[in-house]
Design a protein around this nucleic acid. Sequence first.
RNA 1: GGGCAGGUUCCAGAGUGGCCAAAUGGGGCGGACUGUAAAUCCGCUGUUUCGACUUCACAGGUUCGAAUCCUGUCCUGCCCA
Length: 427
Amino acid sequence: MNLISELRWRGMIQDIKPGTEEQLEKEMTTAYVGFDPTADSLHVGNLVPIMLLKHLQRAGHKPLALVGGATGMVGDPSFKAEERKMLDLDTLAHNLRSIQAQLEKYLDFDPSKPNSAEMVNNYDWFKNITFLDFIRDVGKHITVNYMMAKDSVKKRLDGDSGMSFTEFSYQMIQGYDFYHLYNQKNCKMQMGGSDQWGNIVTGTELVRRLGGGEAYAFTCPLIKKKDGTKFGKSESGNIWLDANKTTPYQFYQFWLNADDDDAENYIRIFTFLEEAVINSLIAEHREDAGKRLLQKKLAQEVTTFIHGAEGYEKAIKTSEILFGKASIETLRSFSEEELIHVLTGVLQYEMPAASLTEGKDVVTFLAEAGIFSSKGEARKTIQGGGVSLNGSKLTGVDLIIDESSLLNGKSILFQKGKKNYYLVRMV
RNA sequence: GGGCAGGUUCCAGAGUGGCCAAAUGGGGCGGACUGUAAAUCCGCUGUUUCGACUUCACAGGUUCGAAUCCUGUCCUGCCCA
């Protein structure tokens, strides 16, 4: 099956330039996706472009991952209501390095292969271009009218926060990337999320006007959740690919908690399972949705892809302990080491052991440990019946935490709500 | 540079001298139900030693008392140049 039809049944094609499919049939094609260095780790939202590159490479084409050292300095205004904060150079450089390291884990960079992945940083070519050169050589070819007509900037043009020239230039800069890669790397195609369509088309336009060549592109629909909320967030914030920011357990839980309808889409987009396999999984899931077969398979596949089999195993184990039949008695039976091991991935906090000798009221304890940002919040949540200590719900705020509260040796397990576990270790 | 309209708690957006820690909606969090879903319903949503304390762009001022009035500063939008 060719790349486009593969992606099509997976629901990963939104817009596509005419001729793209033919180009991919014709020869090994180099295509690129851009990654924004807004943080020092990629997150699940970036997983889509990673999957695109991965599929591309599997189909025998050559993936190019562009990290936006230059574009990151400007900030993409596409569909955003407000200008975002600019990052300083040090942060940017740090983020770039981290992101590069991550990408290397997911794509095949083996240079002996003809379609090995490559990484490029647009800062490398932009740092030598002067402003005057740019506006003369590049800016000349695109009209402001054309740029303003883009849906992606409409929000800002109509909105009440305005758009700086810096941001407005963004699409030109990204467009130039495409032209540059077309020239230097024979890169004829760009992919991305559908929010990038405007920027991408500016690129193909530049390739045509400036280089007289034909460039291709397609975009993937933005991942939407059924309830319309933003994909890629959980109670505790962004879901990162970096195990230090989002542990494999949390990562696994994120996928496991997917809504039934969402899971049907996700499994097509975020796994490499074949169509027949996925269809039978979906059918089976619909038989008895309560088993959440689909979510489990989805979580397994994605967690394994990102964190490896070992990360997945641990995530499963922790999940079974916390959500399975195992009671608090099971937890008590573990030694200190076993406890830490089995709960890897659960958020861990530390408190000085000394605070237990005299005892501390729960509210203060939870606030000081950092589980709640203030005592008031801790108190209100407890009063609302939202906090459990070692598996049993707290009924009042006047409990004293002391040595008798220890689960086993040195730790206390708190639970906020149904799914948020916190292990407080006494040190 | 000129004119006009604005800057309120996470967001949107009321409030125009005391009844304002500030309506309402959204979001977030928690509870019930359930499948660690969805939908629905309910509660919470500045801090607190619960006496208070710090908030309504910033700095001053008027007043017994200001988010609300005055002066200056900064920022934003719209229109004109």
